[in-house]
Design a protein around this nucleic acid. Structure first.
Length: 518
RNA sequence: GCUCCCGUAGUGUAGUCCGGUCAAUCAUUCCAGCCUUUCGAGCUGGACACCCGGGUUCGAAUCCCGGCGGGAGCACCA
């Protein structure tokens, strides 16, 4: 219909003109006769969260299809979460399918790290399939396509073949007889051809106006040893063959994928049609651009190799391992992607929004501690012996307090950035008021009314504070002093007051935290 | 060059299919006020959007046409 829009428009205009020549009353009367249901306006219930999936009422079978070339990162988490959300909503099965059909792009450790990452995300995997176990299935379908005249073995140079395609011309092998095709196909396996000397190509329509949809390669020869199958196989499927075969074999009902795969979907549909298979429903969502994050597997690997990054969980990286290490909760990531939905528009990722969601989750359980960055020591003058009773959490008095003893003649530390403000009077949080006298602090009572006069509150660290460092997402390290109590918070996410949230990763021999966000 | 997809506040989203209840939702962000102990916390309030131009209509975010803008694909990667 779309291609005949102009015709339709003129027909429609004629009809509309007819209808518009009637008065509103006549129109209504006429409509009551032919289609009274249209007079009743449907009320549309307001939808929350993800939109419904068409045809999902009976349950769904969906898949997450990672390429095992490295650990999962923030970008990958979107499809994992969305699939999991739908499987959870409608009931059904979520399959993890490793798409390892390019031997050069397989990192064996990813077969373990990806399920770990998915587990941490809270994504339930019911079945696992590895494509490199399934070569014979791909060969079998390829042979059927060949036998039915829907494919050919092409021995052109790839560039030549591409050029012919571009000008809508068949290559010399396209129309060869089926028997010849099948014997050429056998030769792909027996060593007759080297890499790029022969490929199986699926026929579509060489006259297709969309150049991306004219004949596509489906099987190729590659002598790179595969981490799982070694050199047992040298004929590898390209994604459009293996994905189509497996989506059918796994009886998927719905496929969620990025819209960069839109043309691949169309290509795969040719295979479904040729084989007489019924297709899953496809949903294409837009691209996400994630600023300020290193997500390129190859660049991350290079950075790890040259020491710029400490590993896949370096806080500078956008991997799930790094986010986990920093104290970002999987629930925050889930909420983010659910709110982003799966529209076809391209979107820009917002760290601020993710951090805000994460804060909602961690704030209630995060114990409060003093951490003084870039510490500057001050002598205490005229201090009575006193004990700061700083609440572990201001909203939960029942969790108790950090009791820190301070006495005259001892010293304490303020953060360099606070000192540089040059205030004369300060309130030490949860302790008392002071007057700054050079490199000393003189006790100035404990009346909270000074806050009304605009006196600032600073956090501090006592004389017996312990060294601590915080690894920052920009690769920096903030060194400072923390109150003793932080040593007992290992493994938890805390709020370093006025500094930000951080995960306490290690407390011995020294305290090391990884910064979460402000 | 060819093909396809998509344009609602800074960001994400609801509404678009089926025109009116939309001077447009919610979240985040930003700003202000409140709060006698942190906060970037909480509460209250505020700011900011229908890409542009025509058309149809009593009425257009919504339908039509034309622009403009953004993205993707045209791999023997996925």
């Amino acid at each position: 219909m779309r291609s005949r829009a102009k015709e339709i428009a003129s027909v429609a205009k004629r009809i509309v003109d007819d209808v518009n020549s009637l008065s509103p009353e006549e129109q209504r009367r006429f409509l009551e006769e032919i289609a009274p249901e249209l007079l009743v306006k449907e009320s549309r219930p307001k939808e929350f969260g993800l939109p419904e999936l068409e045809g999902a009422a009976e349950g769904v079978r969906m898949r997450i299809a990672p390429n095992p070339s490295g650990p999962l990162h923030l970008g990958h988490s979107r499809m994992a979460i969305l699939n999991d959300e739908y499987v959870g909503r409608y009931g059904g099965v979520c399959i993890c399918r490793f798409e390892d059909t390019d031997p050069a792009r397989v990192d064996a450790s990813a077969y373990d790290s990806i399920p770990e990452d998915l587990g941490w995300l809270g994504v339930a995997i019911h079945e696992t399939v590895v494509q490199s176990d399934r070569f014979e299935d791909y060969y079998s379908v390829a042979r059927q396509l060949l036998g039915a005249g829907h494919a050919y073995v092409c021995t052109c140079k790839p560039g030549d073949w591409r050029e012919l395609k571009g000008s809508k011309k068949p290559c010399p092998h396209r129309e060869a007889a089926t028997s010849e095709q099948l014997s050429m196909f056998d030769k792909m396996f027996d060593g007759t051809f080297g890499q790029e000397e022969a490929a199986l190509v699926v026929k579509t329509d060489l006259q297709h106006p969309n150049p991306a949809l004219r004949d596509f390669a489906a099987l190729r020869i590659d002598d790179t040893p595969h981490p799982r199958t070694g050199s047992r196989y040298r004929v590898y499927p390209l994604m459009n063959l293996s994905v189509a075969v497996d989506d059918h074999a796994l009886s998927l009902t719905h496929v969620l994928r990025g819209k960069d795969h839109l043309n691949n979907t169309y290509r795969q549909e040719y295979i479904f049609d040729y084989m007489g298979w019924s297709k899953p429903k496809y949903v294409h969502y837009g691209r996400v651009s994630i600023q300020d994050a290193q997500l390129s597997t190859s660049r991350m690997a290079a950075g790890i190799a040259d020491g710029r990054y400490s590993g896949w969980d370096d806080p500078q990286l956008g991997t799930l391992a790094a986010l986990r290490r920093r104290g970002v909760m999987p629930e925050a990531i889930r909420r983010y992607w659910v709110e982003a939905g799966l529209k076809e528009v391209d979107i820009e990722f917002s760290w601020k929004t993710l951090y805000s969601f994460n804060k909602d989750i961690i704030d209630d359980s995060a114990g409060r501690y003093f951490f003084v960055d870039d510490p500057v020591g001050f002598l205490l003058l005229d201090f009575p012996d006193m004990t700061a009773r700083a609440p572990l959490h201001p909203a939960h008095a029942d969790r108790g307090s950090r009791d820190i003893r301070v006495s005259s003649g001892s010293s304490l530390y303020l953060s360099g950035s606070d000192v540089s403000r040059g205030e004369r009077r300060l309130r030490l949080k949860d302790l008392c008021n002071v007057v700054v006298e050079g490199d000393a602090l003189r006790y100035d009572g404990n009346d909270l009314a000074v806050l009304k006069e605009g006196v600032q509150i600073d956090h501090w660290a006592p004389q017996d504070a312990v060294p601590a460092e915080v690894l920052m997402p920009d690769g920096g390290v903030r060194k400072g002093l923390a109150e003793h109590g932080l040593s007992s918070a290992e493994g938890t996410v805390v709020q370093l007051e006025r500094f930000g949230y951080a995960r306490v990763e290690q407390t011995s021999p020294a305290i090391r935290c990884v910064f979460t966000h402000r």
